[in-house]
Simulated scan of single mutants.
Amino acid sequence: MTQTEVFSRAADREWTATPDGNRRRVLVHTDELMVVEFGFEKGGVGALHSHPHVQASYIAEGRFEVTIDGRTETLAMGDSFIVPSNLVHGVRALEAGRLVDSFTPHRADFI
């Protein structure tokens, strides 16, 4: 996607396998902001990690155990969470589901 594109259709975006066995597709991005959809099977884990980007996540489908900075909560479809820069975080899918994550600035490693 170029800097001038402002519309994106999910059907035009390809899923990519993630190192932890899940899948993701970059939906839209600029240098300042990125939206990425992640798909998980039941039991799928987004391993604990950190990054300098601020992350906001929306649970589009399913239930997840979400850990941020050592605190764990169970969240379900319609819930959301935010991860400040550099905090250790991860998820575990309690059932098949999807997360829609926004990152600022964009994750160059996902492009």
Rank of each mutant, 00 (worst) to 15 (best):
residue 13 R to F: 02
residue 104 T to Q: 14
residue 51 H to R: 10
residue 49 H to P: 05
residue 57 S to A: 15
residue 13 R to I: 05
residue 29 H to Y: 13
residue 85 S to A: 06
residue 107 R to H: 12
residue 109 D to K: 00
residue 88 V to Q: 14
residue 101 D to E: 11
residue 107 R to E: 10
residue 75 L to H: 03
residue 93 A to W: 13
residue 61 E to I: 10
residue 10 A to L: 02
residue 33 L to P: 15
residue 63 R to P: 05
residue 4 T to W: 00
residue 42 K to H: 11
residue 84 P to S: 14
residue 33 L to D: 15
residue 35 V to L: 07
residue 23 R to W: 14
residue 16 T to S: 03
residue 5 E to M: 01
residue 48 L to D: 15
residue 53 H to M: 12
residue 16 T to H: 10
residue 57 S to Q: 14
residue 47 A to K: 05
residue 104 T to M: 13
residue 21 G to K: 05
residue 4 T to E: 07
residue 56 A to E: 15
residue 76 A to L: 01
residue 25 R to G: 07
residue 40 F to T: 01
residue 44 G to H: 05
residue 34 M to S: 14
residue 10 A to E: 04
residue 3 Q to Y: 06
residue 110 F to E: 08
residue 74 T to G: 00
residue 36 V to Y: 12
residue 31 D to F: 11
residue 14 E to Q: 09
residue 26 V to W: 15
residue 20 D to Q: 08
residue 31 D to E: 15
residue 100 V to C: 01
residue 98 R to C: 04
residue 65 E to Q: 11
residue 10 A to D: 02
residue 4 T to I: 07
residue 81 F to H: 02
residue 42 K to P: 07
residue 105 P to K: 12
residue 9 R to V: 15
residue 98 R to A: 05
residue 32 E to S: 14
residue 92 R to Q: 03
residue 23 R to G: 07
residue 92 R to F: 00
residue 6 V to Y: 00
residue 72 T to W: 09
residue 80 S to T: 13
residue 50 S to A: 14
residue 6 V to S: 02
residue 77 M to W: 09
residue 8 S to P: 00
residue 109 D to G: 12
residue 11 A to I: 13
residue 14 E to W: 10
residue 3 Q to T: 12
residue 4 T to L: 00
residue 67 T to L: 05
residue 31 D to R: 01
residue 100 V to M: 02
residue 19 P to D: 03
residue 23 R to H: 11
residue 20 D to Y: 12
residue 37 E to P: 01
residue 38 F to H: 11
residue 64 F to N: 03
residue 3 Q to V: 09
residue 56 A to S: 15
residue 27 L to H: 02
residue 89 H to V: 14
residue 28 V to P: 02
residue 33 L to N: 15
residue 108 A to L: 03
residue 11 A to R: 13
residue 6 V to N: 01
residue 65 E to I: 05
residue 84 P to D: 12
residue 15 W to K: 04
residue 109 D to Q: 07
residue 93 A to H: 13
residue 103 F to D: 15
residue 93 A to Q: 06
residue 79 D to F: 02
residue 18 T to P: 01
residue 97 G to S: 04
residue 110 F to S: 14
residue 105 P to D: 12
residue 94 L to D: 04
residue 69 D to N: 08
residue 71 R to L: 07
residue 52 P to Q: 13
residue 49 H to M: 04
residue 89 H to S: 11
residue 66 V to R: 04
residue 84 P to R: 14
residue 31 D to Y: 06
residue 13 R to C: 08
residue 21 G to C: 01
residue 51 H to P: 10
residue 98 R to E: 06
residue 38 F to I: 07
residue 11 A to C: 09
residue 16 T to N: 04
residue 5 E to I: 04
residue 57 S to D: 15
residue 99 L to T: 10
residue 63 R to T: 02
residue 37 E to I: 12
residue 95 E to T: 03
residue 53 H to D: 15
residue 101 D to P: 06
residue 13 R to Y: 01
residue 81 F to L: 02
residue 108 A to P: 10
residue 5 E to P: 08
residue 11 A to S: 13
residue 26 V to N: 13
residue 41 E to S: 01
residue 25 R to L: 10
residue 106 H to W: 14
residue 54 V to Y: 13
residue 107 R to L: 07
residue 84 P to M: 12
residue 59 I to E: 05
residue 19 P to M: 07
residue 44 G to V: 03
residue 66 V to C: 04
residue 49 H to N: 03
residue 14 E to F: 06
